[in-house]
């Protein structure tokens, strides 16, 4: 039996909604098959008010052993570092977060807001929002760079807007069943099992990427979304095209450019007008290259691939 407590800070509940859509295993399976005891969760917990507060206090005192502390949403510091803009159970949420994190064997940040601040931390960041151990790309966050939970692991970051339910459930199951030692984390403390490959890995539009054929308008089923519509699939670490959403599809398969939501900089370019769904260029060359590709190589490769493109690559081959 592993006790799990889930709280929300500056959040939209999107990750809770995603989690509740989990199928293999489902949220119920976590309880019935994997021995996870959900002490409280904002959308599932039966307790209200002082009864919730009592659970939190018992977790901190050790009366209830806290195995896994899950946090969704940003840690809000405003105004003036007090955190008073996000009070919960009679005190600033940031204080609960700090004490519960120190009391827990494992701390799991779910979603962009909890990992690196996400949209709320976008400039000018009026709520002084931050993630548990990062603010965008900078280490530190609410708990500080050196924080480790009782297990010795730092915060396990599962980013996404929202995170895929399988990423959440599989990590929770691994931790709850004593397989945390199998987890390896990357430089942003994301589990490598999910975040080593790119969103592009497994994308059905890869052949169009290879032959440099662009999707030039929404609704086209041919072409690659990277070249013109701002897709960040070639430089975003996620398994969105390996572990499909609803077991069916992904953004790029459905014709929607990847927004790079598992990377610390999301949302990119501060959401300035003209930057969303539009590949940013400098003198005709993409500002952000596919990871590991330099400008010179990109230009050479593109010219060669374009010249070699077969006729079918320029057609809509997904004809029913």
């Amino acid at each position: 039996m592993a006790n799990l407590l889930w709280l929300q800070g500056g959040a939209c509940s999107g990750n809770t909604m995603s989690f509740l859509n989990a199928e293999e295993p489902s949220a119920c399976d976590l309880v019935t098959d994997f021995g996870i005891n959900v002490l409280w969760q904002p959308s599932l917990g039966l307790e209200l008010g002082d009864d919730v507060k009592a659970i939190l206090e018992k977790c901190i005192s050790g009366e209830i052993k806290l195995d896994i502390f899950v946090f969704e949403g940003t840690v809000i510091d405003a105004p003036n570092g007090t955190g008073e803009w996000n009070r919960f159970c009679g005190r600033p949420m940031k204080e609960w977060v700090k004490e519960l994190s120190e009391a827990s064997d494992f701390v799991v940040a779910i979603g962009d807001c909890a990992t690196w601040g996400g949209i709320p931390a976008n400039a000018p960041n009026p709520t002084d929002s931050k993630g548990l151990q990062f603010l965008k790309r900078a280490k530190g966050g609410a708990l500080g760079e050196g924080f480790t939970a009782k297990s010795g692991l730092p915060v396990i970051n599962i980013p996404g807007c929202p995170a895929h339910p399988d990423w959440v459930t599989q990590i929770l199951v691994a931790v709850a069943t004593g397989r945390a030692d199998d987890l390896t984390l990357d430089e942003f403390q994301r589990p490598k099992t999910f975040f080593s490959s790119f969103t592009q890995t497994g994308c059905t539009r890869n052949m169009h990427f290879a032959y440099k054929v662009s999707t030039t308008a929404f609704g086209q089923r041919k072409g690659c979304l990277f070249y013109d519509l701002g897709c960040r699939g070639p430089m975003t670490h996620s398994p969105c095209n390996r572990i499909l959403w609803n077991r069916q599809s992904s953004k790029t398969r459905a014709g929607m450019p990847c927004l790079g939501c598992t990377e610390p900089e999301f949302p990119f370019f501060d959401l300035a007008p003209g930057t969303v769904f539009k590949t940013q260029t400098v003198m005709g060359v993409p500002k952000d290259m596919p990871t590991g590709v330099d400008k010179k190589g990109y230009v050479k490769l593109t010219a060669a691939a374009k010249g070699a493109a077969p006729a079918w690559a320029e057609e809509d081959i997904f004809v029913v």
């Binding site: 440099k212 054929v213 662009s214 030039t216 593109t302 010219a303 374009k306 010249g307």
Partner: peptide, 24 residues
């Protein structure tokens, strides 16, 4: 421009086989 040749041939909007600019 900027030390780079800019022919339609290598442009992302160019359809090689139709010899056509696809920018709407």
């Amino acid at each position: 421009a900027d030390d780079m040749e800019q022919p339609c041939e290598t442009c992302m909007y160019y359809l090689v086989h139709r010899k056509f600019c696809e920018l709407p």
